[in-house]
């Protein structure tokens, strides 16, 4: 199952390191990482594969949210289908 992780906030040292460390800890594989600017905010978008992870979606979501709170950025994880269904027919 694939999901999209978005990190939005002010750029600072260690954001990618912290997020990827959390993901590695629960065996979530990163398929793609990219960055973009939205209204001058740092935005990192990651596509991940949760197929190999035994952590529940809720746990990963909570963990990432806590990580975002610590870093002062907003981190979300959403299943990929929501974007597919909205933008692809």
């Amino acid at each position: 199952m694939r999901a999209v992780i978005t990190v939005i906030g002010c750029d600072r040292v260690g954001i990618i390191a912290a997020v990827t460390a959390d993901l590695a800890a629960v065996n979530i594989n990163i398929l793609n990482i990219s960055q973009a600017l939205m209204d001058n905010l740092f935005t990192m978008i990651m596509l991940v594969d949760m197929g190999g992870s035994n952590a529940s979606f809720a746990d990963v979501s909570d963990k990432l949210k806590a990580c975002g709170d610590k870093l002062g950025v907003e981190i979300r994880i959403q299943k990929e289908e929501i974007f597919d269904s909205m933008h692809r027919i």
Partner: peptide, 13 residues
């Protein structure tokens, strides 16, 4: 894969 612009559009909505 869905583009960044589309992902951010959904999140902004």
């Amino acid at each position: 894969m869905i583009g960044n612009r589309e992902i951010l559009e959904t999140i902004r909505m």
